[in-house]
Computed example of a mutant assay.
Amino acid sequence: MTYSPSDLTHSYIDGRWTPVTGTQCSPVINPATETPVAMLHHAGPADVEAAVAAAKRAHLAEALGSKDNRVALLERIRAGFDSRREDLAQAISLEMGAPIDLSRNAQAETFLIQLDATLDALRGFAFAETLPNGDHLIRQPTGVAGLITPWNWPIHQISLKVFAALAAGCPVVLKPSEHTPLNARIFAEILDAAGLPPGAFNLINGDVASVGAQLTDHPDVAVMSFTGSTRAGLEIGASAVRRGARCALEMGGKSPCLVFEDTDLDQAMEKILAKTFPNSGQNCNAPTRILIEASAYPAAKEAAQRAAALWTLGDPAQSGDHLGPVANGRQWGRLRLSAE
C-alpha cells in the first residue's frame, strides 16, 4: 500500500479546513530518497490569531462540556482510529524514514496507547470532591492550550498532549513539527470525523521561530506544552513566565550509561545498542553517551563494533527488521559533526 500525502495548504480552524494565508512554504522530504513528497504551507499571523480566537470561544462556551461528554468524545475518536491506522503508519514512514514495521507496530500504535491511557484516567478522575476538612474542591479547565510537538515520535507526542488537554476541557491549538506534518493532518481528519465542537481542536503548521513564537506569546493562550530542543524550550518558557501562563517543557536529551572493566563487554554493548539504535537512535532516552572505564576502552570499542555489525540498514518502505535513515538533513549534519 502506498500512502498519498494529504493537502497541506489548509489549517484546521474552528471546525473547518481553512486556506492558509501565509506565504512561506517548505518541502516535506522523504529522508530515504531525499526527494520532496509534499509542500507544506506555513500559517500566517492571521491564521494563528484565528486559531487562538476559535479556541478561546470554545473555552468560554464550555464547548467540551461535562466529563461524560468528554469521555464520549474520546470514545468516538477511538472508534475512528482503525480506518486510518495504516494511513498513519505509511505517513510516518514516508516523512521521517521510520521502517514500516516500526511505524505500524510502534509509532502509529501510540495514538491508541495514549488515547486509552487518557480515557482510563478521565473515567476515574474527580473534577469535584469534598476534602476531609469539609471544603469543596472544584477543578476547572485552565483555558486555551498551545501545543508544540517534535518529529521523532510525532503521533505519540500529538496524542499525548491533545487527548490530555481535551480530557481536561481545554481547547487546543496544535503546532506540529514542520518536518512531519502528514501524520498531524491525518490526526486532525480523525478528530474532525469524530464531530468535535468547533474550536475545540485547531491545527496550524509552521516553524517554531515564527508560528510557534506567535502562539507562545499570545495573551489568550493559558497554558503552553512543548517538547523539543533546549534552545527553543528556554525561549518558550521565558515567554510563558513573562505573561503569567502555565508552561510544561520536555527538552529531551540523551542518557549516559557506564561501562566498567569487570563487565561482559560483548553483552553490555549488545544491550546498549539495542536501546540506542531503534528509531535510528532518535529517542530522547537513547543511551548514546557511553562512558567507559579507561582500562576497558580498547576492548569495549571492539565489542561495540561487533555489536553494531549485527544491525542492518534497509528501505523503510520494505517490511523487515532493519534501520531506516535519520529523519532529516539537519539531524544528519549534527550526527556527522558529533562523530568528527
Rank of each mutant, 00 (worst) to 15 (best):
K271M: 11
K175S: 00
P36G: 02
L122E: 07
L137E: 09
E109N: 15
A38L: 04
G143A: 10
V221C: 04
L191S: 10
P197V: 07
I92D: 14
G244I: 06
L291I: 15
G252A: 02
Q331C: 02
A79V: 10
G124P: 01
Q157M: 15
D101H: 12
P256N: 05
S319K: 10
V37F: 02
G80W: 00
L215T: 04
S255F: 04
G233M: 00
T149N: 07
A43H: 09
W151P: 03
L40K: 06
I290H: 11
A184V: 11
L203I: 01
S26G: 08
C170V: 05
M251Q: 11
G233V: 01
A184S: 10
W153Y: 15
V221R: 03
F125R: 14
A58V: 13
A165T: 06
Q282W: 05
A50S: 15
F226N: 00
R334W: 04
R57G: 07
A299Q: 14
T142A: 13
A121E: 08
M39T: 14
I204D: 11
D101N: 15
K301W: 10
P36F: 02
V173T: 12
A51T: 10
I77N: 14
M39R: 05
E95A: 08
I148C: 06
G143K: 08
L131G: 02
S210N: 13
L335V: 13
A164R: 08
T276K: 07
I292G: 11
A58F: 11
S66K: 05
R185T: 13
R139H: 12
T23K: 12
G252D: 03
K161D: 01
N105V: 01
R334N: 08
L337G: 06
A121F: 07
Q214C: 03
G124C: 01
V208W: 04
A164N: 06
N285S: 14
T230F: 00
T130Y: 02
G329H: 10
I138A: 14
N152Y: 05
D7T: 09
L102C: 01
V221T: 04
L74S: 03
